[in-house]
Every structure is written in C-alpha cells, then in structure tokens.
Design a protein around this nucleic acid. Structure first.
Length: 295
DNA sequence: TTAAATGTTTAAAT
DNA sequence: CATTTAAACATTTA
C-alpha cells in the first residue's frame, strides 16, 4: 500500500520513540511474513530508524537491521508500555503510533487476526500487521540486508537527483511515462497515488511515452513529483477512504483530502477546465487523468 | 459474482 | 533484446 511519504511518516514517528529501546523478543505469527534470523535482533538496542524508498529500516546495535516492506496492506502499530498510574484504565488506541495501510487494526485490540510479527520491546510493543500477506519483515546483518537484490536494484529517490538527472533517467525508456515513474529500478519511492497526482500537476498524459515529453515537461514533472511527495509527507501520508474511524482518533494522515486525480473518477478536474477525471487501466493499475489538461 | 485495492515478481506473448 | 500483458501472491470490500 504505502508509498514513500507514508513510510517516511512512520519513520519520523518511530524515530521519536524507538531509539534506546531494546528488542526483548520477536514473535512470528505467520512464517510467510518473516525472513532471516530473529535471534540476531533479540537483546539488541535500537539505534535509529531509516528508510530506503518504500522500505523501512530499523537499525540495531551490532550492525543488525530489521527491514520491513509494507507492500499493499502492511502496517505498523507501536503500543507504548502501560504506565502504572493507568493500570485500571480501559485499553485504548490513545498514545499509539500507527502507520501504513489503514484498517481498524489501528485502533482495535492487538494482536489482531492480521498481526504477523510482534516485536516485544523492553518498553512497549511493535506490531506488524498485514492483511494480504504480501509484505515482509526481515532481520539480518546490515551487510546482508544492504545486499538484497531488491535494495540493490533500487533507482535513486527523486529527492536525491537533479532535474537534469531525472530527465536523463526517465527519457531512456520508451514505455508510458507513468510506468517509468513507478518503476522502482528507475526512480524509487513513487507508487500509484503519487504518480497519478504528479502527472496531473505537470499536465502530462500518463500514456505519453517517456522519451517523448515536450519542452519543459521533464522539468515540470520532476518538480511535481517532488511536490506531491513532499506534500504527502507534510500531511502525514494518505490514509484512504475508510479512515473515518481512524481519523476520529486523530490517527492517520490527511493527504487523501488533497488527491488531485486519484480516486476521483467522474469528478470535475480541479483546474475547472471542463474536464472530467477519467479512469483506465495502465500496467494493471488504476490510472486517473484529466483528458482536457493532460494531453 | 466480479472487480479492484497506496506493490513487486515472474512467465509468456509481441 | 526491449517491451507489454497477464497472472500470481491473500484478503477484504464494494
């Protein structure tokens, strides 16, 4: 599910609470969701929380890393340790840190039926939940994780390149521009939501072949990719439509309230140019655009 | 019942 | 070889 801004949002939150805490025990509830050796992490202290594109990295003492890929429906929930003074309080979602795919697991009792891995800390508990089981948690040496094929093959994040480099990377392909934006080996971190919105911002048709953008469209697209990603981070990521219950608790992000095209099929283009947002399938993914301004 | 969902990989077809 | 399409991976919801 989550793209770069959603993972970055979790990272920022977890970076406030995890460093200094120790992993006491890792419980694997679903084998498919876990790779590596949990013993390597048990007893180790968290040093920092990092991110590579859409992958979250929890850095532990002794050059051990926990890598987490959320895929479509992964989520993390950090439950702080219950304070003695609140011993008699009814358990609530208050004080939780949540991130990733929004479901009622954010606020419900944990572990839930979607909980796949539990990290017992010396203070608090971190739950990895994943409805569709595409995601994974990996514990291994920093070396092994850095050498994962998936991470090795990642292209640079948009934040780390110039407009000229962006144009060079993207225009090498003759595929439709949207597919190239979402190709993690070309540019990493951009997924379906932000690709749709960035193309709208730059007034580029998702189908346009990546080597045939006109004039300043490469520069415009570069700027709009950075823009929507930064905005996503500023709003704490997107938490999608079924998040009413979650927002009630003040959890989850708000980017979904600022979608340009995503999930707006049939609605008027925000530019009020008379266009109606049209949806079609490109590369097997829902693709939204305005036929008037994105030609 | 069918389709689609913030992702990635693989195989088969062009 | 480059590219495209479809399917696969589970599950849930519309």
């Amino acid at each position: 599910m989550p793209e770069l801004p959603e993972i970055e949002t979790v990272r920022l939150q977890l970076a406030k609470v995890l460093p200094g805490k120790k992993i006491r025990k890792i419980e694997i509830l679903k084998l498919k969701s876990f790779q590596g050796k949990k013993e390597l992490a048990e007893g180790k202290e968290v040093i920092g929380v990092k991110r590579m594109a859409k992958v979250l990295l929890i850095d532990l003492a002794g050059d051990i890393d926990i890598a987490i890929h959320f895929k479509m429906t992964g989520q993390l929930v950090f439950e702080p340790a219950v304070q003695k003074s609140t011993k008699y309080e009814v358990p609530s979602a208050k004080g939780r840190i949540v991130g990733g795919h929004p479901t009622k697991d954010f606020t419900g009792e944990l572990p839930s039926k979607h909980t796949r891995v539990i990290f017992r800390l010396d203070s608090g508990t971190l739950y990895f939940n994943d409805q569709r089981l595409f995601g994974w948690v990996m514990v291994n040496s920093e070396f092994k994780i850095q050498n994962l094929k998936f991470l090795q093959n990642l292209g640079p994040e948009p934040f780390d390149i110039t407009g000229e480099e962006f144009e060079k990377l993207v225009s090498r392909s003759k595929r439709p521009i949207k597919l190239v934006l979402m190709d993690q080996t070309v540019i990493s971190g951009v997924g379906n939501i932000y690709a749709n919105d960035a193309l709208w911002e730059a007034k580029v048709n998702p189908r346009r072949l990546a080597n045939t953008l006109r004039g300043n469209q490469y520069k415009e697209l570069y700027k709009s990719v950075l823009g929507v990603l930064r905005e996503g981070i500023r709003y704490g990521g997107a938490t999608a439509a079924d998040a009413k219950y979650i927002n009630l608790h003040g959890l989850g992000g708000h980017y979904q309230e600022h979608f340009r095209t995503y999930d707006r099929e049939g609605e008027e283009c925000l530019r009020e140019d008379g266009g109606i947002i049209h949806k079609f399938s490109l590369g097997g993914r829902g693709t939204y655009f305005c036929p008037v301004c994105q030609r």
